[in-house]
């Protein structure tokens, strides 16, 4: 017990201890701001991996660690698309994942946002044209925000989410 308390006291508050990232080059559709209005204080995300190399997943996970702590801005991760306000999609959409992506989109309740995370999700990146890949996310579901980067840093993702929520210009 004392060991745990001592550890916590020694560690202190680590939230926010990360280098500021440069302005993200994320592009948003004209309607994205309007669609994001209901989620200004609370945005629940379902992450869908449609064929990424798992670096984007690692950065999404990092978003929830004590250092970035996206929860402090009202960003949560849901276990099911049915509980989500936004889908964050990573990776080029593979032939085998196409159906699963569409189904996840269909089961997400309206109003909803789709965020394409990383170069692969935006334009298939290195896997463009491959027989195993059907195209970028926007070919299958409407995309509201595109976050480039391979992978984008957690600070960048956080920046984009905050901008989307209107918590940041």
């Amino acid at each position: 017990m004392f060991r745990i308390l001592r550890k916590s006291l020694k560690t202190g508050i680590v939230t926010g201890r990360y280098p500021e990232s440069p302005e993200s080059e994320a592009g948003a559709s004209p309607t994205a701001g309007q669609k994001a209005r209901p989620f200004r204080r609370s945005l629940t995300i379902r992450e869908v991996d449609t064929g990424s190399c798992n670096a984007c997943e690692m950065e999404m996970n990092a978003l929830m660690n004590p250092i970035y702590d996206a929860e402090r801005f009202g960003v949560h991760i849901a276990a099911s698309p049915r509980h989500a306000d936004a889908l964050v999609v990573t990776g080029p959409v593979t032939v085998n994942m196409e159906k699963a992506l569409k189904e996840a989109y269909r089961t997400t309740p309206d109003p909803k946002l789709v965020i394409a995370l990383g170069d692969c999700a935006c334009d298939c990146g290195m896997f463009k044209g491959s027989y195993g890949v059907t195209g970028p996310v926007e070919r299958h579901v409407p995309v509201d925000v595109k976050v480039p980067g391979c992978p984008p840093r957690p600070a960048e993702i956080l920046q984009v989410l905050q901008r989307l929520q209107g918590q940041r210009d």
Binding site: G51, A55, M126, S130
Partner: peptide, 30 residues
């Protein structure tokens, strides 16, 4: 498994020996 099959081994055949390094870095990002 194999939901994420992107055709990596075939994509290697489009590369030369020295240009394929970025692709290997994206086989498994971690």
């Amino acid at each position: 498994h194999f939901w994420k099959h992107r055709g990596v081994e075939k994509l290697f055949e489009n590369h030369t020996l020295t240009t394929a390094v970025p692709l290997t870095e994206r086989v498994s990002g971690d």
